[in-house]
Simulated scan of single mutants.
Amino acid sequence: MAQPVLYSYRRCPYAMRARMALHYAGIAVDIREIALKAKPAHMLQVSPKGTVPVLVLPDGSVIDESLDIMRWALQRHDPEDWLGSPALLAQAESLIAENDGPFKRALDRYKYAIRFPEQPPEAYRAQGEAFLQQLESRLQQRPYLLGAHAGLADVAIFPFVRQFSMVDQSWFEAAPYPRLQAWLQAWLASARFAAVMQKYPVYAG
């Protein structure tokens, strides 16, 4: 294996943030785009939980959690100091935990409301808005979530805000979150995002 292999799914926000960190750190990887209904046997062999991203290193070791892939990449090369100080990193990880926990649960129910008929979609959207409001408040005080420059929290969270915004784009564009909307749009318009959203043929395995 000449370089690490990354099993990925282009639209998955977890895979997206892993690809962002790897690209930023300048780490070349062999991207294997999977089909969710036909996951490659090798991927399932090295990571039986069957979710992306999965990074297989040349020595055979496996990293199969997106945040662990991000940390691994940034520990090797972090030219813009995305990790920041230990105190800033602790804040970032706390904010990411909110994103990956309560916000992600609300996002899933909002996006797939037909599977959760206990409440209307607007109720799940309102649950997610609690997190959007926190992000908007942070961005009213600074250009990025935790300071004057981009960091781990921004990169780990924006793919999920993107997904939330796409459920009902008209609603999101009219919502009272101008700083959040501008922050998201800046990430989506970046050359780095364009690079990691390149399309690959599905890996045949």
Rank of each mutant, 00 (worst) to 15 (best):
Y9H: 14
Y9S: 09
R10V: 09
R11P: 10
C12A: 09
P13R: 01
P13M: 01
Y14T: 03
M16T: 15
R17P: 01
A18Q: 09
R19G: 13
R19D: 11
M20P: 05
M20W: 15
A21Q: 05
A21M: 14
L22M: 08
L22T: 11
H23G: 14
H23M: 13
Y24R: 11
Y24D: 12
V29Y: 10
D30G: 12
I31H: 05
R32Q: 05
R32C: 04
I34S: 08
A35R: 13
A35G: 08
L36C: 07
K37D: 13
A38C: 09
K39T: 01
K39W: 01
K39Y: 05
P40K: 04
A41W: 02
H42S: 07
M43I: 06
L44H: 02
Q45P: 00
Q45W: 08
V46F: 07
V46Y: 04
S47P: 00
P48W: 09
P48F: 10
K49P: 08
K49D: 11
K49C: 03
G50D: 02
G50H: 05
T51F: 12
V52W: 07
V52S: 05
V54I: 14
V54K: 09
L55Q: 07
L55C: 13
V56Q: 03
V56N: 04
V56T: 00
P58D: 01
P58Q: 00
D59Y: 10
D59N: 13
D59E: 11
G60E: 07
G60W: 06
G60Y: 06
S61N: 15
V62A: 07
I63N: 05
I63M: 00
I63G: 06
I63F: 04
I63Q: 05
D64V: 00
D64P: 00
E65A: 09
E65D: 14
S66C: 04
L67N: 12
D68Y: 11
D68C: 12
D68I: 11
D68S: 14
I69Y: 00
M70K: 08
M70I: 10
M70E: 08
A73R: 02
A73Y: 05
L74P: 01
L74K: 01
Q75T: 04
Q75S: 09
R76G: 09
R76C: 01
H77P: 00
H77D: 06
P79C: 03
P79R: 01
E80N: 04
D81G: 01
L83K: 03
G84H: 11
P86E: 07
A87E: 10
L88T: 14
L88K: 05
L88M: 05
L89F: 06
L89A: 12
A90D: 02
A90P: 00
A90N: 02
A90R: 02
Q91V: 04
Q91M: 08
Q91W: 01
A92K: 01
A92C: 08
E93N: 15
S94Q: 10
I96D: 04
A97Q: 12
A97S: 10
A97G: 09
N99V: 01
N99E: 09
N99D: 10
D100L: 02
D100F: 02
K104M: 11
K104N: 14
R105P: 12
R105N: 13
R105M: 13
A106G: 15
A106D: 10
L107K: 07
D108Y: 00
D108S: 11
D108L: 10
R109W: 02
R109Q: 15
Y110P: 10
K111P: 07
Y112W: 07
R115W: 09
F116D: 08
P117T: 06
Q119K: 14
P121N: 06
P121D: 04
